[in-house]
Design a protein around this nucleic acid. Sequence first.
DNA 1: AGAACGATCGACT
DNA 2: GTCGATCGTTCTA
Length: 206
Amino acid sequence: MARLSRGFYNQDTLEAARALLGKTLVRRLDGEILAGRIVETEAYVGRCDKACHAYNYRRTARTETLFAPPGTAYIYLIYGMYHCLNFVTEPEGEPAAALLRALEPVAGADTMTRLRYGDKPLTAYREKNFLNGPGKVCRALALTRTENGLDLTGDTLFICDRPEDAGLPPFPVPKKERIIAGPRIGVDYAEEARDFPWRFRLVKED
DNA sequence: AGAACGATCGACT
DNA sequence: GTCGATCGTTCTA
């Protein structure tokens, strides 16, 4: 199965965050394949970014994963009850990562729905807000701190250019799409970094 | 040891 | 639009 190699992650974080849009994230869970098309990311760069956990190379038990080799999964607990998944970028020792913010479901939708909503009835509201947030994505993929540090070149969690690269049916890609950049969500405390246009979304053209 | 806070979400007005 | 849930991480002392 053709997946992104370590070399992909070993690049500038802003470039990686943009390049991840449209790619297919694959999660293997109990032999089943869960997958989604990446449609929203954010960049976090420890060297220069006060919103990054590892700003100014701050090294703690939590941020240790950000110093790992590129192509490592950085997963942390936020607000005491949700998790966020990041893809570590840049050469080892440069603490930086792309945060996964949203997916379009590609495979394993039934399982993802159950992980996210249990037996609650599916409403239009829930359909619309299925995978459009970092905590939601981690819930639907059953990712917690247990998976922190996973190697993205392994078999449990990885990224492909297209669903076919993981043996999945093709995803109907919209004819016209563009990338929208804007300020990141939830980093108002981060002084000048709050305004960095480091949030990237893949949106359909009108 | 204690306190403050957070890369969120869903319920509610 | 507002607000509370909930707890690990981090810093202070």
